[in-house]
Nucleic acid binder design. Structure first.
Lengths: 222, 222
DNA sequence: GGCCACGTAGTACCGCGGTACTACGCGCCC
DNA sequence: GGGCGCGTAGTACCGCGGTACTACGTGGCC
């Protein structure tokens, strides 16, 4: 039996979902919420297996509510529903930790299959959105990422050297690194020099590129 | 009516799929292939809506076959099937341009739904794989990517300056850029200087970071 | 015609970055 | 005890990178 919390600001919409979920034996609607804050509170209180979350709501929206429910660390999984397949929603929801993203015009069996999948720890994405997601994914995720992460050159670095490499990847000068790590600039130079030699980089610029390619530097991390 | 090409090295497996697809009116199996090369040839010849592709095959594997079929530019969409949910397969398939990825132990209706979705231009991922895909996606895709791509600083660059920035992002020295673009080093310096001023970077290192954050530089592009 | 944006090119100067080499203290292991 | 890896630090040197400024040809727009 899968317990479900329905979150939507429109009573009629909640009613529809409630009816649908009651029509099958495997799901049990344990509560409803009309906005984000109530959703967070009820999720903590009722500890449902799945939270059926609308994105657009007055006050705290579904994304923020998702973030908080996921951050709370309970076992509740969030399945986000929306009318529009706006990319921002999808991205934001994924980053917020949602386990799924479906369109409200999904067929009932799709919704039920989604709830089933989410409840069992899997994730679902509406086919119409998956297309774009895959395209972006292919763009962003480096080829042979696994190999890159396991690059033997990475393992040859000492902990300190890896720290230095990350700092270099942030674009810091030797002087800045020295200041932040409370070191002399000479020491930083020594470390940087060793890092360059180990990873086979000509200069710190290629070290920055190496850091990005190997996941040591993350966009917007600074 | 959706035309399907079945690709699998095991005759029994092909037979099973064939039976399943024949049991519903909406799909029409137009051909079978036992290995990658045959799949590529038959895809070009039969121009099916959907290619049901097994990953593990002797000779040319499903990934390579997928790459070629997609590269051929026809309207055929490839739905990859596998027994094991190995990450490498999923990544490789996505990069190869597959429109979907399902496990062979999927229930028949899931497979049919997948074929339907793929045929209509959407994409599907087995729920069991989607979970991991989303986790990685959230990690790799920068927040507010849309905003970053629309950075006004990017628009202020001239075409030439953007080319230079990309070259800088590859880690090339001014001398190398001059050589590859057939320019004097002075000119390159002038361009780089203007780029730095426009994007607000202190030095070329921060320009490299800027390039990565804004999608101008791609991992493993060089 | 004149202005402006752009791409091209040069000179001069300075400083950060990178290399080479040396050095020392600490903790660990044979 | 002696070696060794690691982190720390220094000196000396050189060159690439970045800045400032000037300059000129071309194409487009008023």
């Amino acid at each position: 039996m899968t317990t479900v919390l329905i979150v939507d600001d429109q009573p009629l919409q909640r009613y529809g979902f409630h009816l649908l979920l009651d029509s099958v034996p495997e799901t049990d609607v344990v509560g409803e919420a009309a906005h984000g804050a109530e959703a967070v509170r009820k999720a903590a209180e009722l500890r449902p297996d799945v939270v059926l979350m609308d994105v657009r709501m007055p006050g705290m929206d579904g994304i923020e509510a998702t973030r908080r429910i996921v951050a709370a660390g309970g076992r509740s999984r969030v399945l986000v529903l929306t009318t529009f397949d706006l990319d921002e929603y999808v991205h934001a929801a994924i980053r917020a930790g949602a386990s799924g993203f479906l369109l409200k015009d999904a067929r009932p069996e799709e919704l039920l299959a989604g709830i089933r999948a989410v409840a069992s720890g899997d994730a679902v994405i509406a086919p119409a959105l998956t297309r774009r997601l895959l395209d972006e994914y292919a763009q962003y995720v480096p080829a042979h990422r696994g190999n890159a992460a396991d690059d033997p050159r990475l393992g040859s670095l000492t902990d300190r050297e890896r720290e230095i490499l990350v700092a270099v990847g942030k674009g810091w000068t030797n002087g800045e690194i020295a200041a932040r790590f409370v070191l002399s600039e000479s020491t930083v130079k020594t470390h940087v020099g060793r890092v360059l030699a180990k990873i086979g980089a000509r200069d710190r610029i290629q070290a920055v590129i190496f850091a990005y390619d190997h996941g040591l530097a993350r966009p917007n991390a600074d």
